[in-house]
Design a protein around this nucleic acid. Structure first.
Lengths: 96, 96
DNA sequence: TGAATAGTTGAGCAAGTGTTCATATATTAT
DNA sequence: ATAATATATGAACACTTGCTCAACTATTCA
């Protein structure tokens, strides 16, 4: 089946979301459930700024969604597709 | 489930294989079957050098395998994991 | 009101990526 | 041998990426 250039780019962008260890770790935490930026930063040993920068990218890719509550912002995974990619990839890394 | 830093890196490396449009297109052709470097280059409108450089990376990641026949080198996908990731990603891009 | 807290944003920079171009190697044909 | 073909490789370069740091906004608390 022929793959158009546009779809090749979109596919590459999708996989780029998971092509960095920090983002993978962010997603692995968000799979457990909603989390604030500072909780993510603490859990990942990253500055809030660095986390925020990554979340911005993930937001633009529609991979996470933000919900504001007071002065905190809670993030969740936007859909289960990325989660499926994640667990399939993890399966590949762990076994296989 | 806790994700170790090592596995986060390995996961990121795996997804990096598909994080570039040229590599996605190379893989989309190899899904159809074995292909030589020059056939890939022609099918993708890339120089043989550029294709060869990308194939080297994919080889190192154990995503493709090379088979030499005379002066041609034929490449195939090393296992079906990446193919599964590819089609799951494509599904996400096309629908959903 | 002013201070503290949570997060975002932009600039700057070091490191990484993907291509081109030239060159090298291996194989086949003359 | 020499030439031609198929691929690989290294250097160079433009471009991208992910971080830090400082400055900013928004919200809560005293």
């Amino acid at each position: 089946m022929k793959l158009t250039e546009l779809k090749a780019i979109q596919l590459a962008e999708l996989f780029s979301a998971l092509s960095d260890a920090s983002r993978v770790r962010i997603i692995s935490l968000l799979i457990e459930g909603e989390m604030s930026v500072s909780a993510l930063a603490e859990g990942l040993n990253m500055t809030e700024s660095a986390v925020s920068h990554q979340l911005r990218g993930l937001r633009q890719m529609r991979i996470v969604r933000a919900r504001k509550e007071g002065r905190q912002v809670f993030y969740t995974l936007e859909d289960e597709h990325v989660q499926k990619l994640y667990s399939m990839g993890l399966d590949h890394v762990e076994h296989g």
